[in-house]
Design a protein around this nucleic acid. Structure first.
Lengths: 299, 299
DNA sequence: CTGTTAGCGCGTTCAG
DNA sequence: CTGAACGCGCTAACAG
């Protein structure tokens, strides 16, 4: 009930215009002035508490530093902004435990909806026990028919791609991938198998539990003889294969030590937060690392 | 003061254990049971309102679908989680107007700190008028000595890389980049110029306002004769150059129509949100597009 | 040790 | 049309 409270109260009224009530221009002016001199901005946390809606969307991905997920996040962010929502991304690195933590965080933040790409082994109980009655869409994954799911027609796509290779006349076609625990890859490998067996050919899998192992597998398995063609099930696997085949330009580059940069950034920020933003503003400039490869003419 | 309120009150007490106070096991049991049967989770929005701290970090980037920024976001997310913070990423696509909107959103969410890669033309007033007294770290950009900044030693790195090419004996070295309005690229181009003029050579810039224009520029400028060496100032520019030089493997791939996928995802989610999560759960499966290039043997 | 209370900033509702 | 009051769920402070 101080003067400022009174003025803040006025602020509300200007918003009442939306309800169709007319406001005297005189009042509107007064309010506008108050807003300006108080530097007033509504508090979304209070608004969320009072209104029971946080206008927040949760996103649970294995990681965001991956071309597919970062693009997805970009698009989700744009769509969310368009509707006045804000996005909170959380990553689980394919760990069920961390994923449960993520889902709980979202519940405590009272997110209004969640988009999740589940870690391997995710079950309906898993998700629903953390997030009962929460709007959920599974992206690029699938745990139960009870949860909406958006994903590529993985199986069919892989079948079509394999068929294309078969039509070229190749008969020895290997399917190369890692992480067989991940939904999309299982589906894709099935599609490949479908196409092969339909031609009376036996599928030839080169599959490893993760990408480092995949590289090793490829080197040993294919050391003597490569198949005529390869169906590679993911971007990362393709890069692995190209690396081995020498299909990647060896560019000499300046590498940004991004981990160190972000570490510096975060510690600077938290120092400000802890010290009340009063810390001496300094500039942290980090040396780049010249990574010499062949493109400059070096051997 | 209802029964449930009483029980919720009990919940607090279990947390008081952290303060070292002992709680009778009897009470602890009662509380634990209440938590379970109420499916209680603390409300972070209420907590934020009451405590005056949102435990939220804002991140303002040009975009997150970009390898540098998505990796940065990944690392920020990990660091933030470690300290109990949650991250809200917002993108501005190098638009000052959208950036101001982002900063305002963060203010209204009462973010406790902000990491920002500024759009070209960002000024101190710009940032401070939206975010007075807010802890801020500028990442990979710089608007004022009053704001902490973390960035690569761009100038020096470019100078070193250029010097490396000069040491190889190249004399005709062009510097290729787009978006000269962006801080890092201006710095890098200066570093290049430094190294060239230090050798008595005149810098040879091939610079365009954006990447489409850059591609066109390269094709016309270098149609007759390429320089002996190129210093390319960004990943995207490097991909442009490699595309023109034919240095990129033309892989036949299945393309995920990601824009359509995310559109479907968001509309499914918002439908659930609007209809009270009651919508019929359906599976939306989207066909992949077989993009035929040369790697399969097609001409 | 345990129960109660005030008030964070907002939106809704009800009196003037 | 305008002012005041209530309560969202929580935490801090205080009373039993």
């Amino acid at each position: 009930l101080t003067a400022s409270y009174v003025r803040l109260t006025r602020v509300r009224e200007s918003l009442e215009q939306r309800t169709g009530v007319t406001v005297r221009p005189e009042v509107a002016k007064r309010v506008a002035k108050a807003v300006l001199e108080l530097d007033y901005e509504p508090d979304e946390t209070a608004r969320a508490l009072r209104g029971g809606k946080s206008r927040t969307l949760g996103v649970v991905f294995p990681k965001v530093s991956n071309i597919f997920f970062s693009q997805a996040l970009q698009l989700i962010g744009e769509g969310a902004r368009r509707r006045g929502y804000t996005v909170v991304p959380l990553t689980h690195e394919d760990s069920l435990e961390q994923q449960n933590e993520d889902l709980l965080t979202l519940r405590r933040c009272r997110a209004e909806g969640v988009i999740v790409t589940g870690a391997p082994g995710t079950t309906l109980q898993n998700v629903r026990s953390a997030l009962p009655h929460m709007p959920i869409v599974a992206l690029d994954s699938f745990f139960s028919p009870e949860i909406e799911s958006v994903h590529l027609q993985n199986r069919q796509a892989a079948r079509a791609a394999t068929k294309h290779l078969l039509d070229h006349g190749y008969r020895s076609i290997a399917c190369v991938y890692a992480r067989p625990d991940i939904f999309s890859y299982r589906e894709r490998s099935s599609g490949y198998a479908d196409a092969m067996t339909a031609q009376g050919l036996s599928p030839q899998f080169l599959c490893a539990e993760d990408y480092p192992h995949l590289e090793a597998e490829i080197r040993t398995q294919f050391s003597t003889k490569w198949p005529e063609a390869l169906l590679v099930l993911s971007d990362v696997a393709a890069l692995t294969v190209l690396g081995i085949l020498g299909g990647l330009p060896a560019l000499t580059v300046v590498r940004q030590p991004i981990a160190r940069m972000m570490e510096a950034t975060l510690s600077a920020l938290f120092r400000q937060i802890d010290n009340g933003a009063a810390a001496g503003s300094q500039t942290i400039s980090i040396p780049g690392e010249l990574v010499i490869r062949q493109s400059c003419g070096c051997p």
